Amino acid sequence: HNGKLCKLKGIAPLQLGKCNITGWLLGNPECDSLLPARSWSYIVETPNSENGACYPGDLIDYEELREQLSSVSSLERFEIFPKESSWPNHTFNGVTVSCSHRGKSSFYRNLLWLTKKGDSYPKLTNSYVNNKGKEVLVLWGVHHPSSSDEQQSLYSNGNAYVSVASSNYNRRFTPEIAARPKVRDQHGRMNYYWTLLEPGDTIIFEATGNLIAPWYAFALSRGFESGIITSNASMHECNTKCQTPQGAINSNLPFQNIHPVTIGECPKYVRSTKLRMVTGLRNIPSIQYRGLFGAIAGFIEGGWTGMIDGWYGYHHQNEQGSGYAADQKSTQNAINGITNKVNSVIEKMNTQFTAVGKEFNNLEKRMENLNKKVDDGFLDIWTYNAELLVLLENERTLDFHDLNVKNLYEKVKSQLKNNAKEIGNGCFEFYHKCDNECMESVRNGTYDYPKYSEESKLNREKIDGVKLESMGVYQILAIYSTVASSLVLLVSLGAISFWMCSNGSLQCRICI
């Protein structure tokens, strides 16, 4: 991952900044910058967002509201009850120091605090018919004063009620008058409520006091790749198909172990950190130390980045220098085999997901714990399936590479015959000098055995068991695999060879 928040398929997220979902939807004055928000790819909250409900109280069923919003990608904020005409018999300019803005008392931008007009609070009834052709999110509140005197001074009615009804919602609220500790300079409380109004449905408000009335509502448009994440990451000019709280993932790998919460087309989250597919040879310690064997393909974004291909070729060293050249036929066979294998694994496992966190309130801790156990169970199954699949494929890959290298080895052996000696570690020792032209003939299969047989015969008789390297004779190393990324691999195959001279070296080696 890149540690950044990015656009998702070209669409920017909605960053709530210092506000949370509650503050944004109710219209906390400190969240005025969010009022123009219309569309987004996903919503970003920060872990310690401080601006929620400015007048103390709870947004009821907040967790369910977050779940609903996680599939919303755009909205239209509109005046559901026009301020100047909807409440002619009531005062609608209630403000509070708890919702101060720029040093002055204020109130929510989407709600109206209705109080008595003169000395009376006549029963009010108002309704709205949803003609938007889509779901409408309606929010309101109920004020709970701290004393009967406060109730009387604001609403005149000691036994007030609030009723809200639609086809799918029907509740009646009565204020709970009680002494409470002071929070944000208030002994009173406000509880906030919401409902989704279906197209064509009607919502009716009736009250004799204590109503925090809707002013603006939201017509919602769903987008199934949307979601809500909690993150401290910063926004950058970048684009992605998959976003996590820790950063964007741009990967076609089937798995990731970065974060379980994802938005967009994302690899499946697994616990494993070692889900690797081999593309090189079986481990040979001396070669492995030099980083030549054991190439791997990573299938977990965050564990290993991208696929690494092994390729086969020849390396030689003689009086004229040293050089490398790919054996294109065996390399292409290996590439085709690995590509098919990788595609097979991805096809089997690479279903892209959006995974969002589930919200539970403080009273639902047991449910949250149960949900976590269920999620953990599914996660263990996914991890096991992934590891088992790759384990089985790896064994076949190792066998496949062994065969490829063996074929190259036999190709060289059949040409050199007794003009060189096998020394048991995949290397041959020449009994004759071999210049670049000679080396090329070994690589392309045109090695002239009779041409060098007499010199080889004489050297075999002279050496008589002495280690060949100390006599200045020449080696050919018969097994060799270097490691390159897919891009470098293609470039390498396009070149005939490249040279690395070893000044004054008397050794001649050709490596497979």
Rank of each mutant, 00 (worst) to 15 (best):
Q288K: 02
I510P: 01
S330F: 00
K406G: 11
H315Q: 13
H401R: 02
T339A: 15
V342R: 04
E440G: 15
D376E: 12
C501R: 02
L458W: 06
G306Y: 08
S322Q: 14
S344E: 12
T279C: 06
E393N: 14
L281K: 04
L379P: 06
Y431F: 08
S497G: 15
L292W: 01
N333P: 00
P285Q: 04
V278E: 05
Y449S: 11
A297Y: 10
K341A: 04
Y447Q: 12
L416G: 07
Q320D: 12
R276F: 02
N369S: 14
R271F: 06
R460Q: 13
Q320W: 07
P254N: 06
T354K: 09
G445E: 13
G323C: 08
S322E: 15
S456I: 13
S441K: 13
L489K: 05
H401I: 10
I346A: 02
E440M: 10
I338C: 11
D309E: 12
I479Y: 06
M367C: 06
E393Q: 13
G306M: 03
T262G: 15
I258G: 01
T240P: 00
P260S: 01
N318F: 02
N459G: 11
N419Y: 05
L391E: 10
N425M: 13
M367E: 05
Y269V: 01
E347V: 05
G303E: 06
G357T: 11
G424R: 09
E455K: 01
R282G: 06
P260V: 04
K372V: 08
A334M: 06
E387K: 07
M307E: 01
F299C: 04
R271N: 08
N239G: 00
S344P: 01
S344M: 10
G264M: 02
E422S: 11
K268S: 11
D327E: 08
T240Y: 03
K462M: 13
F255R: 04
Q320T: 05
L493V: 12
A420R: 07
V342E: 00
C438D: 04
A478G: 12
G302A: 08
L403C: 04
K241F: 08
D380I: 06
F400H: 06
G264D: 06
F293T: 04
S272K: 09
L392V: 02
H316G: 00
N361W: 06
N333T: 12
C501S: 10
L363V: 11
N362Y: 12
F293V: 13
A334D: 04
N283K: 11
L489V: 12
I423W: 08
R366Y: 10
D309A: 07
I335V: 15
G313S: 02
Q320P: 02
S470E: 04
T279L: 13
D448V: 10
V390N: 07
A355Y: 11
F400S: 10
K421G: 08
G494M: 15
I287G: 00
C438A: 05
S330W: 00
A325G: 01
N250G: 06
T446S: 15
F299T: 03
C266I: 10
L458A: 13
H315Y: 15
E429N: 14
N350V: 08
G321A: 02
L275F: 02
N362K: 10
N385L: 12
N257C: 09
V345C: 12
H236I: 06
K268Q: 09
F255M: 14
M307K: 02
V374L: 10
Y474M: 11
P285M: 01
R509I: 11
N407K: 15
V442H: 05
E301S: 08
A484T: 15
I496M: 10
A484I: 11
S231V: 11
T351C: 07
F360V: 03
Q320F: 14
N418S: 13
C242M: 04
N333R: 14
R443Q: 05
E301D: 01
M500Q: 06
S272A: 14
C266P: 02
Q475K: 01
W499V: 12
K341E: 10
R443M: 12
I284Q: 09
E387H: 09
S502P: 00
K462R: 11
G280H: 05
E422N: 13
K457L: 08
N333E: 11
D399A: 06
K241C: 01
V466F: 11
M349I: 15
S251I: 08
E237Y: 02
F498T: 08
Q507M: 15
A495C: 10
Y449C: 06
Q288R: 13
D448W: 10
Q415L: 15
S231W: 07
E364M: 10
N340L: 04
T397L: 07
A386N: 15
L392R: 05
G504K: 10
N407H: 11
Y384D: 09
D402C: 02
L281T: 09
N385C: 09
Q288W: 04
F378D: 07
Q246M: 15
C438P: 06
T279R: 06
G465S: 12
K341T: 07
R396M: 07
L370W: 11
F255V: 08
M439I: 14
L408H: 08
C434A: 08
N371T: 07
K457W: 10
Y431V: 01
R290N: 00
L292T: 04
D375M: 11
L477P: 02
A233N: 08
D399F: 03
Q415E: 06
R443T: 05
V491F: 09
E454A: 14
R509N: 02
F428H: 11
I479S: 03
G424A: 05
G294W: 05
Q288V: 04
S486L: 14
V491S: 13
S234W: 01
I338L: 13
E422I: 14
S505M: 08
G280C: 08
Q328P: 00
Q243C: 05
E387Y: 05
G424Q: 08
V483S: 03
M349F: 08
W499Y: 12
K406P: 14
P245A: 11
N369W: 07
V473D: 11
A495T: 11
W311L: 11
K462T: 13
L388A: 01
S453D: 01
Q256I: 06
V412G: 04
G313M: 05
I263G: 07
P285W: 02
S441E: 08
R276I: 03
Q320C: 04
C238E: 08
V261G: 01
P450Q: 01
L253A: 09
G247W: 03
V390R: 03
K406Q: 08
A495D: 06
K241V: 10
L370A: 08
T482N: 07
L403W: 03
A420D: 00
L389Y: 03
C238S: 05
M235S: 10
G264C: 05
K413L: 02
N436S: 02
G313V: 00
G310E: 04
S414G: 14
T244F: 04
N257F: 06
I381K: 06
E237C: 00
V442L: 00
N350L: 03
Y312R: 00
T244M: 01
I284C: 09
S251C: 04
K372E: 10
Y384L: 09
D448H: 14
K413Q: 10
S456A: 15
I381R: 02
G310Y: 11
S453Y: 14
C511P: 06
E393F: 05
L416Q: 09
N350G: 13
F400W: 14
C438G: 08
G313N: 10
I338M: 11
Q320N: 07
A248G: 08
F353K: 02
K433I: 15
T262Q: 09
T240S: 14
K268M: 04
S234I: 12
R366I: 09
F430T: 07
T351F: 05
C501V: 15
V261D: 14
K341W: 07
G337C: 09
I510F: 09
S485L: 14
C438I: 09
I463K: 15
A248P: 04
G264Q: 10
K457F: 12
P267E: 02
G302N: 09
R443G: 03
A295R: 02
Q415P: 01
M277N: 08
E265A: 12
S414P: 02
G426I: 14
N459Q: 14
S286H: 06
K365S: 03
V488T: 15
V270C: 01
N252H: 09
K451I: 09
S485T: 11
S441H: 13
